[in-house]
Each structure stands twice: as structure tokens, then as C-alpha cells.
Measured scan of single mutants.
Amino acid sequence: NITNLCPFDEVFNATRFASVYAWNRKRISNCVADYSVLYNLAPFFTFKCYGVSPTKLNDLCFTNVYADSFVIRGDEVRQIAPGQTGNIADYNYKLPDDFTGCVIAWNSNKLDSKVSGNYNYLYRLFRKSNLKPFERDISTEIYQAGNKPCNGVAGFNCYFPLRSYSFRPTYGVGHQPYRVVVLSFELLHAPATVCGPKKST
């Protein structure tokens, strides 16, 4: 009989979030998941669920729940959905087409922007091929755009693959930082360890 609440607040209220290319994953298990708490945590810009209804979450049980978190800019949030393409979905964080879970995003301009520009958040701009779903690539190998090998040196047709967002508070919403948490629900042929409040007794 599990009584402890799932530590969603640790994920959502973390002081620092990860850069999207090096997104963070927390496995959540053996706890009571009260998803209604999430609705009250922040004024969400996005709370979209796929393959599951957000209002039914509190009635369900899962084997595992994974919470992935990272920062992107406002106009990239739409890429965090099944079947999307674009720089983020292709080279940084890719959801599977049959994704079961929820994408939660909110504006973090007050936390993640600086007047002089916050350069701490990076994204991958160049990659030889698209990522597979939930693949994480943290390599910093020089990207070869031409025929000549780069031998690890940046220059003509040889690019450092990561680029930094420079978040400034005066930017338009599309270029402001957004914190994203992706909850993916895993149903294996194994005992369910993460249940809503109704199912945990």
C-alpha cells in the first residue's frame, strides 16, 4: 500500500533546468501520483496529453512515469509533440509517434532571462542524422558540413554543433524561455507502482 506522493514538485520547481540537447530525465515510481497538483503548480502555457485524457490521469496506474525536463524558446514548444519536425524535434528531443503522456510548458522569462542575455541554455544546431525517439546526444564533436574532414577544428564548413540561446527579458514571447516537462507513461507487463490517489488504497 503506497502512500508517499510522487515528487513532481522537485521536477517542476527545480531551480535550474537542463539545456534541451542534454535534457534531464527523472524516473518516478512507487508513489501516489496526484496530477491535479500539477494544474495548480504554475499558470501553464501548455498542458497537452496524448493517448490519455488529462482529467482521467488520477484514475490510472502505470509501471513507471518518466519526467523529462529542459528549456526551449516559446515558438519551439509546438515541436514537443508526436510527429513534429524542426531543429528541436530533429536534433535535441524527439517524441515517438505513439507517445503516451503529457507535455507541460510554461513561460520562464522571469527566471531564465537576463538583461545582458542568459547564454547558459544550449541547443544542438547541427547533426548528421535525426534523433530516434527519446535519444539523447550530448556530443560536442565538430560538425563537418563540407567534404573536407574537420579534424576537430572549427572553421570553414566545420561547425561547433551547439548554439546558445541568449534569453533577454525584452524579447518577444516566441523568443522567451519556456520550461518544459514531458511526462511519459510506461505500461509494462509488470506491477503498477505509480497510481492516482483513488487507485492507491
Results as ranks from 00 to 15, higher is better:
Pro177Ser: 05
Ala105Lys: 01
Thr100Tyr: 14
Ala105Leu: 03
Val182Arg: 00
Phe47Glu: 03
Gly117Arg: 07
Glu141Thr: 12
Gly74Trp: 01
Ala154Val: 13
Cys195Pro: 08
Pro191Leu: 03
Arg25Met: 02
Cys150Phe: 05
Lys110Gln: 12
Cys195Met: 08
Ala33Pro: 12
Asp68Tyr: 03
Ile104Phe: 15
Phe156Leu: 15
Tyr171Arg: 14
Cys150Met: 04
Gln176Trp: 01
Gly51Lys: 09
Leu95Arg: 00
Ala33Met: 15
Asp68Pro: 00
Val103Arg: 00
Tyr91Thr: 04
Arg124Leu: 04
Trp106Pro: 01
Ser164Cys: 08
Gly86Asp: 02
Asn157Glu: 15
Arg124Tyr: 02
Leu95Pro: 02
Lys199Tyr: 15
Val180Gln: 00
Gly146Phe: 04
Asn92Asp: 02
Asp34Pro: 06
Glu76Thr: 01
Pro191His: 12
Arg136His: 06
Tyr21Gln: 05
Pro197Tyr: 15
Tyr159Glu: 13
Gly51Ser: 04
Tyr66Pro: 02
Glu141Asp: 15
Tyr123Gln: 06
Thr15Gly: 05
Leu125Cys: 14
Asp97Tyr: 07
Gly146Leu: 04
Glu76Asn: 02
Asn64Gly: 09
Asp137Ile: 01
Phe70Gly: 02
Gly101Ser: 00
Arg27Pro: 06
Asn24Gln: 14
Lys198Cys: 11
Phe99Val: 00
Phe17Ile: 05
Ile104Gln: 00
Asn13Met: 09
Ala89Pro: 07
Ile72Glu: 01
Ala145Arg: 10
Val11Lys: 03
Lys94Trp: 00
Val52Asp: 04
Val20Cys: 04
Ser19Glu: 04
Pro7His: 11
Asn58Ser: 12
Asn118Ala: 09
Tyr93Ile: 03
Arg179His: 05
Arg163Ser: 11
Tyr39Met: 15
Tyr123Asn: 05
Val103Ser: 00
Ser113Pro: 05
Val153His: 14
Pro43Thr: 08
Ser129Met: 08
Val77Leu: 13
Asn107Val: 04
Thr140Glu: 13
Ser129His: 13
Arg124Met: 03
Val180Gly: 01
Gly86Ala: 05
Pro197Arg: 15
Ala105Cys: 06
Val20Lys: 03
Gln84Gly: 12
Phe8Met: 07
Val115Phe: 11
Val173Cys: 09
Leu38Lys: 04
Val103Tyr: 00
Glu76Phe: 01
Pro96Arg: 00
Val103His: 00
Cys6Arg: 02
Tyr121Cys: 05
Val180Asp: 00
Gly83Met: 11
Phe47Gly: 05
Gln79Val: 01
Ala105Asp: 01
Gly51His: 07
Gly117Trp: 04
Leu38Thr: 03
Arg27Gln: 11
Arg136Gln: 09
Leu57Ile: 09
Gln144Tyr: 03
Phe44Arg: 15
Ser69Cys: 04
Asn64Lys: 10
Asn87Gly: 08
Pro177Leu: 05
Asn130Met: 11
Thr55Lys: 15
Trp106Phe: 06
Gly74Lys: 07
Val153Lys: 14
Asp9Phe: 09
Pro149Thr: 15
Gln79Ser: 03
Val11Gln: 04
Arg179Ala: 04
Tyr39Leu: 14
Asn13Glu: 04
Lys110Asp: 15
Ser29Cys: 08
Phe126Lys: 12
Asp75Leu: 05
Val71Tyr: 01
Thr85Arg: 14
Phe156Asn: 15
Val180Asn: 00
Gly152Ala: 08
Ala81Thr: 03
Val11His: 03
Tyr143Met: 08
Pro43Phe: 04
Gln84Ser: 11
Tyr123Cys: 06
Leu125Asn: 13
Asn58Leu: 06
Gly86Met: 04
Phe134Tyr: 15
Lys48Arg: 13
Leu60Val: 11
Leu187Cys: 11
Ala18Tyr: 07
Leu38Met: 08
Leu57Asp: 06
Val182Gln: 00
Ser139Met: 04
Thr46Glu: 13
Tyr143Arg: 06
Asn30Ser: 08
Tyr165Val: 05
Thr55Asn: 14
Pro7Gly: 10
Ile138Lys: 09
Ser184His: 13
